[in-house]
Amino acid sequence: MAYSDKVLDHYENPRNVGSLDKNDPNVGTGMVGAPACGDVMKLMIKVNDAGIIEDAKFKTYGCGSAIASSSLVTEWLKGKTVDEAYAIKNSAIAEELALPPVKIHCSVLAEDAIKAAVADIKAKKLAKVAA
């Protein structure tokens, strides 16, 4: 398997590894994939009241491309609004990292993780409003 330099860079020096406080009402969590499929991604975003993503952290169980995809999106997410984040397409991730066809699913998973995290924070904020 030949990895691109960008994949190798993210794999060797992953950005924003870690977790945020999941009980924080401003933190949304997306956990996607399954161990049996060989990939599990956990993405956490911290969103301020203006709807801007202030911080993003990830942990990934998966191949080099999965780790690179999730590391890359944490960089992209910071400073974006949740709606902008929601619009990120897997093709952009795959293109940026020059993923080979057999690794496209890693970028799909990263997109899914963003959508799951955004959905989580929206649900939390709605719950807060309702309460």
């Binding site: 590894v17 996607v32 994939g33 399954a34 161990p35 599990v40 942990k59 990934t60 169980y61 780790i67």
Partner: peptide, 24 residues
């Protein structure tokens, strides 16, 4: 393992085999 969400869950005492994973 520092990167692995599964390791984190294991350390938190979660039984991974009992977790319902979203089908993908």
């Amino acid at each position: 393992r520092e990167l692995s969400p599964l390791w984190e869950m294991f350390k938190d005492g979660i039984d991974i085999s009992k977790v319902q994973w979203a089908s993908h």
